[in-house]
């Protein structure tokens, strides 16, 4: 009897969390639609094919980082080092290309470097038992410092023309950054939704102790998750390097905040276990569309930050009130 009651409770709870999750999902989508419709009405330049491509291309940089951040936050962690990984891996790739390495090799080395830096975060957190906030705060500083050492604080230029295709090129008239974002999104969506690893990520975030007791190697899951975050930050960095035709020592500063904002706007819970990657894409779009709209409307620099912060607050409040 007791047992049955417990089961019913659990089922009811599960149902509740599902409906909660759906509401949360609606919240961010509603926010995006409201901003979208408003901007279309106010500015005649907003809803055009060329501007939509433009916005998506700009969003791709933040979205890629935010995808990785979604995995990290789902496990109940946080990764503050993404901006520094972004800078260091793109500086490494650019430095190699500037000294004559084939762009393909340089890109691969850059991506691998990102994954290795991410794995280092994961090892510190999983094996060293350092809190994610502290571990990645420390590596954020270390990686940024290494970037300054490597670049001597100067931009790296003189990159080969073939490298430009990576971030500046088009595939079927679609800008390459958008293509990379969509490919990454598709792969990560499948991993999160349909793989054992994806289920482990959710399980780890909901209840780490129980996950460990059920025989899952939680350390390995953590190291993997931070590696994914590092890899995506590196990919994002190399795309931007290609678009700018140069690597900057100061690139990616405070990008972690935009990425975290996108994840949270998308309805993923900072305490882990709950969320989805589609929401992150929506969150990144809200931030990107807002930036674009403020530029199009020529809003004064003093008001821009107030508007941006305000919209984020409203979106999150909408989420919270709906999820009650």
């Amino acid at each position: 009897m007791l047992r049955q009651e417990g089961r019913i409770d659990m089922q009811a709870e599960a149902k509740q969390t599902v409906s909660k999750a759906i509401f949360q999902r609606m919240g961010s989508l509603v926010g995006l639609v409201v901003i979208f419709v408003a901007l279309s009405l106010i500015s005649s330049d907003f809803l055009t094919v060329s501007n939509m491509f433009n916005v998506l291309r700009q969003i791709s940089i933040n979205a890629l980082i935010a995808f990785g951040m979604t995995f990290v936050i789902l496990t109940g962690g946080i990764d503050l080092s993404v901006g520094s990984i972004f800078a260091l891996s793109s500086a490494l790739a650019a430095g190699m290309m500037a000294s004559g390495t084939d762009p393909f090799v340089a890109i691969m080395v850059g991506l691998a470097a990102g994954a290795v830096m991410g794995a280092a975060n994961g090892i510190l957190i999983a094996k060293g038992k350092v809190a994610p906030f502290i571990a990645t705060l420390a590596t954020m500083t270390v990686f940024r410092g290494l970037t300054l050492v490597y670049t001597e604080g100067k931009p790296i230029t003189g990159l080969p023309d073939s490298f430009a295709l990576f971030g500046k090129g088009f595939f079927l008239d679609i800008p390459m950054p958008i293509i990379w974002m969509l490919i990454a999104f598709a792969i990560l969506y499948v991993i999160l939704k349909h793989s054992t690893f994806g289920r482990h990520v959710y399980a780890l975030g909901s209840n780490e102790e129980a996950t460990k007791l059920s025989g899952i190697n939680t350390s390995r899951v953590k190291i993997f998750v931070y590696s994914i975050s590092g890899l995506l930050a590196a990919l994002s960095g190399i795309i931007l390097t290609s678009r700018l035709n140069s690597a900057q020592a100061t690139a990616g500063m405070s990008y972690e905040l935009d990425a975290i904002a996108a994840v949270v706007l998308g309805g993923t819970s900072l305490s882990g276990g709950k969320g989805w990657i589609v929401g992150t894409l929506i969150g990144a779009m809200i931030i990107g569309v807002l930036d674009n709209g403020l530029n199009l409307l020529n809003v004064s620099s003093f008001y821009q930050q107030v508007v941006k912060g305000g919209v984020i607050l409203i979106a999150v409040l909408l989420d919270r009130s709906k999820s009650k």
Partner: peptide
């Protein structure tokens, strides 16, 4: 002066903001 927009002394932002301005 058709647009006065902040790009925070940053190269990446300079590019993004200019892209947006060119849309309008």
């Amino acid at each position: 002066v058709v647009a006065t927009q902040p790009a925070d002394f940053d190269r990446a932002k300079g590019m993004t903001v200019m892209e947006n301005i060119l849309q309008g």
